[in-house]
Design a protein around this nucleic acid. Structure first.
Length: 540
RNA sequence: GCCCCUAUAGCUUAACGGAUAAAGUACCAGUCUUCGGAACUGGUGAUGUAGGUUCGAUUCCUACUGGGGGCACCA
C-alpha cells in the first residue's frame, strides 16, 4: 500500500525526468535510519544496461521527486540509491486512517476477485495429530488468514484418506492385537479396540477412522482455532463419479498403458524418473489415482488459486502431481489459475536430550495435544511460524518448556498489554476519540509509526509468496518499537495535546499488534498474568 | 546412485541480487521517587570450503564437505 503509493510517485517522476517507462525497480524501507525512511534502486537498475553513472542519473529523478511535496527530503547515495524521507503529514494522515477505520487497516481489495482453495493438514485419520501435522496446520491456517485479509475468498479443506490399505490395516490391528506385525500402536488403539464391534477388517477400520476424525483430530484442530469448511472424503470420489471421469480422461488422452497386470500413467513424458501405477494388479486404485481425481475436481470448482500445504516426506509426490496438473489437467479443464505447493520441511522432536523418531505406526510420536498442553498453544505456534518452511525444524521439548516464560511471544504480548494498561488509565478504549492534532515529537514515535505503515505491504507480500514466517519477525520488530516508546516517552504528566497525540499513536500500535497476532493465530491479552512460581529467583 | 531442502553470532533464526549482514537468547556493562522491569540503553560475536557470473553475492551458477528428507502395485 505505502510501497505501492511511493512506487507510483517514483514512477511518475521517472517518466517526467527520463521520458520513458522505468525498468522493474523496488521501494523498500531504508536499511539504516541515516538513509531516511525509504529507498529505491531505480537509478541503479536503469543504468545496468547503459553503464551510465547511477549517482548522476539519480540526480535527474530527485529533482522531480522533490516537486511532488510527498517528501521532506530526498537524497542520493553511492552506489546510486535514492533515499527519501516522507513528511510528518504523510505519516499522520496514515495514522488517522488506521485509527479511523481499524477494520479496514491492512485489508486489501486486490484479492477481491480471487477465490482460493487451500488444503492443509490432511493427516492420515489413523491416529491423533502429531507435532509434524502441527506445522502444516499452523502454516496453512496463517496463509488462509493472510489471504482473507488480502481480500480473497478462502476455502479451507482437509482431504480425508478414508480409503485404502491403511484403513484396512488399522482394522486389522484392532481385530488382531496378538499379531506381532500389527501396524499401529498406542493407547488410543487399546481404547478403540473396546469400542469397535465390527468383525470385518475393512468395516472396523472405517468405523475407527470416523471415531479418530471426530473425537481426536477435529477437537485438536478446534482447540487451536482451526475449522475447515470442508472435510473432503477420498472415498466420495468414487461415489460421485469424479474418479471414473478422471480415469477416463487419462485413458482417452492416451496417457495410460497396461503392464505387469497394472495400469500405469506415463509421467516420464513430463520429466518424471519413472511412470506411476494408477490401477494395481488387484484392481484397486492407487493413492495417486485418487489424488489425480481429487485434483481434477479441484480444478473444476471455480477457484483461481489452489494451495497445497504438505510435508517434505511428500515432496517427490508433489512433483508428480504437479506434472499431472500442469501437463494434462490444466488444458483439459481450461483452468487458468495458479497452483502453489507449500512444502514444509521435516519437524524433528527432541526430548530428554535425544531425538524421538515420530511414527504413528510404531506408536512413537508426541501428539500435538500434549505439546499444546505442556508448552502452550501460543508459544508452540510462534515457534513453528518463526522459521521459513524451507528449513528443518528441530523442536526441543525441554527447551520449549523451560523457556516458556522468556520468549518472543511474551515480549510481543507484553507490548500489547502495556498499551492496554495505559488506556485503562487514561481513556476508555471504546470512547477514545481521535484528537484534532497528532504530532510526531520524537524519532522514536516516527520509527514506530513507520513500522506500522509496513503492515499492509507485509500482507500484500505474503499473499504473494506465502512466507508466513515474516509475520513473527514483523511482530517482534513492532514490539521492540513499542517498548522503546514506552520506556522513553510518556503519556502521564504530559501536556494534554501531547498526551492525546500519544494515545492516538498507541491506539494505532495496538491495532497493528492485534492484527498481526491474529494472523499468526495467537492471543493478544490486555493483561499479562505472571506465573510467580516460574519467575526466576533473584540473587539476594 | 538419482532428486529435493539446508549450512549465517556460543544457541534458535532473519535478510525482492544492494548500502555498515538483522533479531531473540546467552554473556559483559549500565538504566527504576512517574503509565506493568516478561522492559529499556550500550557492548562482545557470524555468511561451511574453493572457484565463477556481476558495478555489487548470504542470495545466482559449478565443485567439494557436513546435516535432513524422498526415490513402492504405502498413503
Amino acid at each position: 500500500m505505502v510501497k505501492g503509493q511511493l512506487h507510483q510517485v517514483v514512477r511518475q517522476s521517472y517518466l517526467k525526468a527520463v521520458g520513458s517507462e522505468p525498468p522493474k525497480f523496488v521501494i523498500e524501507p531504508a536499511k539504516h535510519r541515516m538513509f531516511g525512511d525509504f529507498s529505491t534502486n531505480i537509478a541503479m537498475v536503469s543504468c545496468q544496461e547503459s553503464g551510465e553513472n547511477a549517482v548522476i542519473f539519480a540526480q535527474k529523478i530527485v529533482q522531480q521527486l522533490e516537486e511532488t511535496k510527498v517528501f521532506r527530503s530526498v537524497s542520493v547515495t553511492t552506489p546510486g540509491f535514492i533515499n527519501f524521507t516522507v513528511t510528518d503529514e504523510y505519516i499522520i494522515e496514515f495514522v488517522r486512517n488506521v485509527i479511523g477505520s481499524p477494520e479496514a487497516f491492512g485489508r486489501s481489495d486486490l484479492g477481491k476477485e480471487i477465490r482460493v482453495l487451500i488444503e492443509y493438514v490432511s493427516a492420515n485419520p489413523t491416529g491423533p495429530l502429531t507435532l509434524a501435522n502441527g506445522r502444516g496446520a499452523f502454516v496453512g491456517e496463517s496463509i488462509a488468514k493472510v489471504l482473507e485479509l488480502y481480500g480473497c475468498t478462502v476455502m479451507r479443506e482437509f482431504y480425508v484418506n478414508d480409503q485404502g490399505s491403511q484403513v484396512r490395516q488399522l482394522g486389522h490391528t484392532l481385530l488382531h492385537p496378538e499379531d506381532p506385525e500389527k501396524q499401529y500402536a498406542g493407547k488410543y488403539i487399546d481404547d478403540l479396540r473396546k469400542r469397535i464391534k465390527e468383525k470385518d477388517e475393512q468395516e472396523a477400520g472405517e468405523k475407527a477412522v470416523v471415531i479418530i476424525m471426530e473425537e481426536m483430530i477435529k477437537p485438536t484442530l478446534k482447540s487451536i482455532g482451526i475449522e475447515f469448511h470442508q472435510y473432503f472424503s477420498e472415498k466420495s470420489l468414487h461415489q460421485t463419479g469424479v474418479y471414473k471421469k478422471a480415469m477416463d480422461l487419462l485413458k482417452l488422452g492416451g496417457y495410460t498403458y497396461e503392464a505387469d497386470g497394472a495400469t500405469w500413467v506415463s509421467t516420464t513424458r513430463f520429466g518424471d524418473s519413472e511412470d506411476r501405477v494408477i490401477l494395481r494388479s488387484d484392481g484397486t486404485p492407487s493413492y495417486f489415482a485418487n489424488d489425480i481425481a481429487y485434483h481434477s475436481y479441484k480444478l473444476q470448482r471455480g477457484y483461481h488459486r489452489l494451495i497445497n500445504v504438505l510435508g517434505a516426506d511428500h515432496f517427490q509426490y508433489t512433483r508428480q502431481m504437479n506434472m499431472i496438473v500442469e501437463g494434462i489437467l490444466r488444458d483439459k479443464f481450461m483452468w487458468g489459475g495458479k497452483l502453489d505447493w507449500v512444502v514444509t520441511q521435516i519437524v524433528r522432536l527432541f526430548a530428554n536430550g535425544e531425538e524421538i523418531k515420530m511414527s504413528k505406526r510404531a506408536g512413537t510420536y508426541i501428539p500435538l495435544d500434549e505439546v499444546l498442553e505442556e508448552v502452550g498453544p501460543d508459544v508452540t505456534r510462534f515457534l513453528f511460524l518463526s522459521k521459513s518452511v524451507d528449513t528443518h525444524l528441530d523442536f526441543n521439548f525441554d527447551i520449549a518448556k523451560s523457556n516458556s516464560s522468556q520468549n518472543p511471544v511474551f515480549y510481543i504480548q507484553y507490548a500489547y498489554a502495556r498499551i492496554s494498561s495505559i488506556f485503562r488509565q487514561f481513556s476508555k478504549e471504546d470512547d477514545f476519540v481521535i484528537p484534532e492534532k497528532i504530532m510526531i515529537t520524537s524519532p522514536i514515535e516516527r520509527q514506530l509509526l513507520l513500522r506500522i505503515m509496513q503492515f499492509p505491504d507485509l500482507v500484500e507480500e505474503i499473499a504473494g509468496d506465502l512466507q508466513v514466517h515474516k509475520l513473527t519477525h514483523y511482530a517482534t520488530g513492532l514490539a521492540t518499537c513499542l517498548h522503546s516508546f514506552y520506556e522513553n516517552l510518556r503519556v502521564q504528566g504530559e501536556a494534554p495535546e501531547i498526551a492525546q497525540s500519544r494515545l492516538a499513536i498507541l491506539k494505532a500500535t495496538s491495532i497493528t499488534i492485534k492484527k498481526t497476532l491474529d494472523l499468526i493465530g495467537i492471543t493478544a491479552p490486555s493483561r499479562m498474568v505472571k506465573n510467580d512460581e516460574k519467575a526466576p529467583t533473584t540473587n539476594s
